[in-house]
């Protein structure tokens, strides 16, 4: 195939992407620099500096995203590792169970947590029945609730690539290490874990980026106590409406996401190499 035919194949999609994706984003980004009747302006960015509250919401978003990402790794790594050791059939079922929620409405899953984790919910009733707690534990309407909800939605994004990397690790390599007398712990930390590290890092960054744009979960499970940038943007777009300010904030968020994505691409290449 020559150069021009290769390009001919991507041309139709490229046209659509430019018209329905790239141009709208550029237009939105440009809005922050534009003022009706006066032309170019930086006032909307200056507005951000004067009212650092918006930047603090961004900071809060980064913090919550970090917490949710850590929770994801804490649950996802052992899960993927366990799945690697399963038999063929069990592994298939496990993959299906990981994939299934991937495709069930975020809304539904988020609301299900209210029933599971509420004061009169399944978990609290079980805890009290077991005598572990006297008063209900406040799982919802705080950062914990948002973290649980976000971790649940994003877990497949971490587990699937991690699992893919883990099944590529040759068992003979681990057996060789064992035959040389290395204790299991040493094998795990010196041989196995380093081999999964690139995929882990890439998956972690992907999850972190996806956390940044979360909208439904903080709105429902945060009880209004967990300000996230998406919800602030919604307010600025729909309620106030200060689109130019929203555009300035979006630009900063986009830059943060793209910088992290650049890191992800580097690690992802390493992981697949």
């Amino acid at each position: 195939m020559n150069r021009s035919t290769g390009f001919a194949f991507i041309a139709p999609l490229l046209v659509l992407m430019v018209v329905a994706f790239n141009l709208p984003i550029i237009y939105m980004l440009g809005l922050a620099f534009w003022d009706k009747g006066r032309g170019f302006t930086l006032e909307h960015y200056e507005g951000l500096l004067e009212a650092p509250v918006y930047l603090r919401v961004l900071g809060n978003t980064l913090r919550i995203s970090l917490i949710a990402t850590i929770a994801n790794v804490a649950i996802g790594y052992p899960l993927a590792h366990w799945m690697r050791g399963l038999g063929r059939r069990a592994r298939l079922i496990a993959i299906a169970l990981v994939v299934l929620p991937f495709w069930v409405s975020i809304l539904v899953r988020t609301y299900a947590w209210i029933v599971v984790l509420g004061n009169g919910g399944l978990v609290n009733r079980s805890l009290q029945w077991l005598g572990l707690t006297d008063a209900p534990v406040q799982f919802l309407y705080n950062e914990l609730g948002v973290t649980i909800g976000m971790a649940n939605v994003l877990l497949p994004f971490l587990v699937l690539p991690l699992f893919a990397a883990m099944i590529r690790i040759d068992d003979r390599l681990l057996q060789a290490a064992a035959s040389l007398g290395a204790p299991p712990r040493t094998i795990f930390w010196k041989v196995y874990f380093p081999l999964t590290l690139p995929a882990l890092a890439a998956g972690t960054l992907l999850v972190f980026i996806l956390c940044l744009g979360f909208y439904v979960t903080p709105a429902v499970l945060g009880g209004g106590r967990v300000p996230m940038i998406s919800n602030l943007l919604d307010t600025l777009i729909n309620q106030i409406p200060r689109w130019e300010q929203a555009s300035a904030i979006s630009t900063i968020l986009l830059i943060v996401a793209l910088v992290i994505f650049a890191g992800y691409r580097r690690l992802d290449r390493k992981a697949s190499a």
């Binding site: 992407m17 237009y27 939105m28 809005l31 940038i229 994505f261």
Partner: peptide, 20 residues
């Protein structure tokens, strides 16, 4: 560029499309 709708936070895609 083709992969970017997955990476760009959805709220930004929503706002960009809304405005344009």
């Amino acid at each position: 560029n083709f992969m970017s709708p997955l990476i760009v936070p959805t709220i930004i895609v929503a706002i960009a499309l809304y405005l344009s």
